[in-house]
Design a protein around this nucleic acid. Structure first.
Lengths: 232, 232
DNA sequence: CGTATCATTGAGCTTAGTCAAAAAGTGTGG
DNA sequence: CCACACTTTTTGACTAAGCTCAATGATACG
């Protein structure tokens, strides 16, 4: 178990979410790679990221890992009808803080607090939006489109801060498992986009997007700059 | 607009869902291919399938269609934080009935009715489960695994009735757009599975699963029958 | 400063997409 | 009931994209 501590002062200025649960919620600090909740455990808690980032992943029968959600500050997870979590959530960077609350408590408070109930609905809709966005990206045909879509989504989801250089919260391996590609193909695609002038790589973890249009649709054909704003 | 009519007598015995909305909800009949709600419209209604089946789809920039959700009786859709629907829902078979209710009304009732609020939460979690299941299938590597996963999911979601022959509610084209494959590859994969003795095709729309294990993990290597039950 | 992890690049091979055509259903009207 | 047109499904040959194996270069961390 982790030490429960006070909300961190970094990023997003404390827990905006679920004010009504303030007295029941617990904030926990996680190291890089540490499990926040794991597959097979009783699904009796709801979580939300306060600072840092995390990945939700499953291990397939062939041994490959598939990342099924990417969690940034203010993103919620752990919502399910099932009795157990069917995937594992791990922190991706050091100093990741997550809030949590027992499902029983949250639902009990929600029963008498429509405001919280509404907030939970919105949080769940947000989680669905993430899944739909990922499905739209993974469902694309070519590796170039997938990687481009990934960069655009990351750009949209972290736009609040650092509008300059986009800092990727995950390694190439994570990106590969997120997109259903091999690491080599991810790397090659990034190089390819760089050579086309669509992006600029400032070290392995930092990217600057130069031509959004070249990442969205078919790469190469320069068409109008379609801004795909996606509400977080 | 469609004619609003009384709930059909077919399947699932009327609207089990959202009893609290009975007086506010409307049941509508749709023909095959008819739009239930469409991309760009104000997202001011919630829907649920009562009988029949529907597909939720988006058109990508390259002109391809991607099916991002498959809706069977009791499945809900139209949940979003955004102001507009970002995809189109169409009936896939004739005699598809859908219930609907304005979001304002539903949320107003939910504010004073914790039972309904809980029901909405569960419905949303169910929609998330579908998305996660689809993501897990689309994220698989080979076409054989994708088609196998699709058959298993369909089997699980329609298990209540017709445990014998699994009747597919969609065409090969729909399956292809659901899995992100070409029609030819879907057809070839089914033929391949048939030749391996994993399934039996009784006409184009009816399938009998003979070896579940051959559909789940790596095909060919006969290992123990892992039953991947998925709660609908 | 050395080591382990991560990232990039190269060569060969497998898989699925594309183009094209035939076969099997499906529904309609005579 | 049958003939026709239309859609859907299947099959084949070819091509191209991405995976695998392998090695090198870069980065982070002790």
């Amino acid at each position: 178990m982790n030490s429960s501590i006070h909300p961190p002062r970094t990023a997003c200025g404390g827990p905006r979410r679920f004010e009504a649960l303030r007295t029941l919620a617990v904030t926990t600090l996680y190291c890089r790679g540490q499990e926040i909740c794991s597959q097979g455990e009783p699904a009796d808690h709801w979580f939300w990221i306060i600072a840092g980032s995390a990945r939700r992943s499953v291990i397939r029968s062939d041994g490959r890992r598939q990342i099924v959600d990417l969690l940034l500050p203010d993103d919620c997870f752990g919502f399910t009808n099932g009795a157990e979590y069917d995937d594992t959530v791990e922190a991706m960077v050091a100093d990741t803080y997550a809030g949590s609350c027992s499902r029983r408590d949250a639902e009990a408070v929600a029963d008498s607090n429509p405001e919280l109930a509404r907030e939970i609905r919105q949080a769940t809709f947000g989680a669905m939006s993430r899944l739909q966005a990922q499905l739209a990206i993974v469902g694309r045909v070519t590796a170039l489109e997938k990687v481009g879509g990934y960069l655009l989504e990351m750009s949209a989801r972290t736009s609040s801060r650092s509008s300059a250089g986009l800092v990727l919260p995950m390694s190439r391996y994570d990106i590969a498992d997120y997109l259903g590609l091999s690491v080599e193909t991810v790397s090659r695609s990034l190089t390819h986009l760089k050579e086309r002038g669509a992006i600029k790589l400032i070290g392995p973890r930092s990217v600057r997007i130069l031509e959004r249009a070249a990442l969205g649709g078919e790469v190469g054909a320069p068409h109008e700059d379609v801004l795909e704003a996606r509400s977080a």
